[in-house]
């Protein structure tokens, strides 16, 4: 194996236990009421629930309001460049499968400038959690249309309304070869958000979660209905997906959907009257890129022997 999960790292994995305070970073600087706050809270709760060692957890992001998230979590963080969080995460995971990797992207980040990487990362299916914080707009750069902006919704770049139908990230991911986990949740339903993050984390493979995220600054009307009217929400429930019994009282609509059913998932992912939340698809048997054959690390002495042997093949 070539990665650097030296024994020293495992030795450090003593019997510590971690509380919320161990994961809290500086105070976030998002707008008041921004959905990113809820995502941060859920992420920190997940870290506690799963007792992930802070030094062996990495949050990788691109650029955008949402991509600020790593700064506020006290783990390792990589706040890179716009649209390119996934290649960085791929590199980290290829070298260090021992690390838990979370990727945080905005809708512009993931579905526009980084769309190519998104499709390929889905296919690589490396064990990481990818969160698409979808506020249907470019937040950081102040209100430009994103691929997921609903048709007709105005912005600074398309003031008379977005010209085209919105890109549906669930359909796109479900359409990609070797997808293994596709879910949708809404940050204003914390119990569902948490349960979805947990399912995503526990899934072995590339867990893609689209989080519907309020942006009170630019897209408040788009999320109004979903927030105020539980009736427009429909939960996908299954033992193998996400089930939050406590929510049943509030959200009357639910469908029993087996996440192994890809055709069903694709049908449910289509745009409809209701906002569907839950695990659309999950199949742990899909090939994972990190499972490609690896050799164990060689010691320096062994490597030198190998190199000498190799030089011999070129000897004059």
């Amino acid at each position: 194996m070539n990665e650097l999960c030296s024994l020293a790292v495992y030795g450090a994995g003593d019997d510590r236990s971690f509380a919320l305070g161990d994961y809290e970073g500086p105070l976030p600087r998002w707008c008041p009421g921004c959905g990113d706050h809820s995502v941060l809270a859920a992420v920190q709760r997940l870290l506690v629930a799963e007792q992930l060692a802070p030094e062996r957890t990495v949050f990788v992001s691109g650029i955008g309001c949402s991509s600020r998230l790593p700064h506020y979590v006290r783990t390792y963080g990589f706040h890179g460049i716009h649209g390119r969080a996934l290649p960085v995460a791929t590199g980290i995971k290829l070298h260090r499968p021992d690390l838990s990797v979370f990727v945080v992207m905005g809708d512009g980040d993931c579905t526009s400038i980084g769309a190519g990487h998104w499709l390929h990362a889905t296919r690589y299916n490396m064990d990481m959690v990818a969160l698409l914080l979808d506020n249907n707009i470019y937040g950081l750069t102040k209100n430009q249309t994103s691929p997921t902006t609903p048709q007709g919704y105005p912005s600074n770049t398309q003031p008379r309304g977005s010209y085209l139908p919105a890109l549906n990230p669930l359909e796109a991911t479900l359409g990609m070869t070797n997808a293994s986990f596709v879910a949708q949740t809404a940050e204003w339903i914390p119990a569902h958000l948490f349960a979805t993050l947990q399912a995503a984390h526990r899934h072995r493979g590339f867990s893609f979660v689209r989080v519907l995220q309020r942006c009170p600054k630019y897209t408040a009307p788009l999320f109004e209905e979903g927030m105020r009217k539980p009736d427009v929400i429909e939960l996908l429930v299954h033992d193998d997906g996400v089930t939050v019994p406590a929510l049943a009282g509030v959200y009357k609509h639910s469908i029993h959907h087996d996440p192994l059913d890809l055709d069903g998932a694709r049908r449910l992912a289509e745009e409809g009257d209701r906002i569907r939340l839950g695990v659309f698809f999950r199949d742990e048997s899909r090939s994972r890129y990190e499972d490609i054959r690896r050799l164990r690390s060689f010691t320096a002495e062994e490597k030198i022997d190998l190199l000498e042997g190799e030089l011999e093949r070129h000897a004059v």
């Binding site: 194996m1 999960c5 030296s6 690896r294 690390s297 060689f298 010691t299 320096a300």
Partner: peptide, 16 residues
């Protein structure tokens, strides 16, 4: 087993 031995080999390198 390879994973285990890799971790050991990496530490051997570090200590070296």
């Amino acid at each position: 087993r390879t994973l285990f031995l890799s971790a050991v080999a990496d530490l051997v390198g570090e200590l070296g």
